[in-house]
Design a protein around this nucleic acid. Sequence first.
DNA 1: TTGAAAGCGCTAACAA
DNA 2: TTGTTAGCGCTTTCAA
Lengths: 341, 341
Amino acid sequence: MTPPKPRNPTSFDVAELAGVSRSAVSRAFTEGATVAPETRAKVLDAANALGYVVNPLARGLQKGSSNIVGLVASRLDTPIRGRQIKLLAQGLLGLGFRPMLITAEDEGDLPGLLRSALSYNVAGMIVTSDTPPPELVQECADRSIPLVLVNRDPMGPAADRVQIDPVAGGRTVFDLLLECGARGLACLTPAGETFSVTGRADSFVAAGTAKGLPCRVVVAENQSYAAGRRAIADLGIGGLAGVDGLFCATDLMALGALDALRIDLGLRVPDQVQVVGFDDIEQAGWGAYQLTTVRQDLEEQSRMVLQLLTARIGDRSRPPQLCVQSLSCVPRATTRKPLAR
Amino acid sequence: MTPPKPRNPTSFDVAELAGVSRSAVSRAFTEGATVAPETRAKVLDAANALGYVVNPLARGLQKGSSNIVGLVASRLDTPIRGRQIKLLAQGLLGLGFRPMLITAEDEGDLPGLLRSALSYNVAGMIVTSDTPPPELVQECADRSIPLVLVNRDPMGPAADRVQIDPVAGGRTVFDLLLECGARGLACLTPAGETFSVTGRADSFVAAGTAKGLPCRVVVAENQSYAAGRRAIADLGIGGLAGVDGLFCATDLMALGALDALRIDLGLRVPDQVQVVGFDDIEQAGWGAYQLTTVRQDLEEQSRMVLQLLTARIGDRSRPPQLCVQSLSCVPRATTRKPLAR
DNA sequence: TTGAAAGCGCTAACAA
DNA sequence: TTGTTAGCGCTTTCAA
């Protein structure tokens, strides 16, 4: 009276049904293997009849490389991250990879989780958050495990990278704000965050300084809506005296800042203060905000990541590459009309 | 001049260094195996020195069960989904599982992807979107592969489930709106979406009908912000004549509806129309919206899912269970003060 | 408590 | 082009 507990059919079953050897089955399921068309057809028919799929565990074990790709991402509950992971996961799946999601919310866990991921003989690794320890980056290089770093700090051992140009980013915002007539600059940046985020802020400030427009720097606790709002609200009207152009290093913070300016401080945007964000998350376009921002093209980012990954799988000895994402201004309602030149 | 390409150390290496057999190593890494404490210590030391980790591919292959858990989720770029997956992934990782992310954006891909997931000898499967084909649910049951369905249509073969009570959900909103003085009811619901979403809408309408308050039903193309906004904007002022209480089946749609009412139609909320959403996504609490809503507790949901999963792993023959999430009202600024009783 | 040996399902030389 | 054979790294009876 034991309940039925069917196992997955194995290549042995298929071989038997098709009247061939197990290697023939294996070959029928291997790209570019040397197998007669009719043999392959027989095998495929049999496989179909049985519902056979290659056991990826066995294959991964044998080949020393699975089709699993480690996808490191934290703060998935953030609009930009959700979108990013969705696109990456879709893309990976489309290429036949299987994304293993690694969210290191605790940061200290990361090394262990990464090491553990490597033990799955992963086909590659994509890191979109938390900078991996240099030893691990090095280990990936040594074992020629493809590793793509997305908007990670460019220090440490070489690896394939996709990133925005933070200098261009900050510069773009500066030019925009200047064109729109802002002269009293401020910049909202999160405390101790990634190079890509603080980098744009830094280069915004640098651009201002270079043009003789000193820039007040406001530091938020982190890059959330709440932190952005609090940082600006805490500043108060007085703290914002003379400020008519505010750059927020992420849209999420910018939306918080916007609510702080309008609701908490009663200021008019863009009349009294103009605000520019960065990323172009969905919410930036919502009716109540209409935030002017700089768009990070995540489709492009995802394409670049996958391209780098597959290219390296194809040629493990190619030199590490750097892909720079394109950036574009999205003028909306939190800035004024550009001045005529 | 071949570059070094270190492999992962194997149990053989550890055995050699520790001066024991490979089985001893295996036992040292197996919960509740019969191994002398000092032997285990020797093994663990050696393993540590070598940086050994059990190869999960080999283990999964041999034991017929890996520590991978399939996590089916689409529309990850949506606030509620991002949060849900973050919590679930964190929880799984914390329990030593490895979430394999399966996003079936194309719907038709789902069966294939699920079948493929099963071939990883997964420890279990969590489905948070797209209803899996009944055969597959059945197959999981037959092969006693733990399967937890989150807010899925309760038809089809039995399985462990976590869900809200859609009837209670709709009812809660109805009561709230009634208490706040609304009498002309409307309900915004997405076209052809999941039972959990349309269910709350249906039961809201039913509650109204039962009380002699007929309810206008407005159908949005899907459950996005844009669709919600468009649906209400297209209705126009005329289409909303007599409506002073609007329930939107998801917060995302509600925020769109809110912008439509205020910006596109120039109505005052809550003075002219009160609005209630559902889910309590982060954005609902943002300053510009302050949406009154019904909160779905995702932490609790995640806890329930993991509990169901581990419980079934512990006892594969227990009857399928249903966990019902709790719901709570979050009154904010899109409804008026409740009338005194 | 431990080791020897078989086998999980697959792929990749090697021979035929 | 195909089949035979030897592992990939692990767990698990079975004896000792």
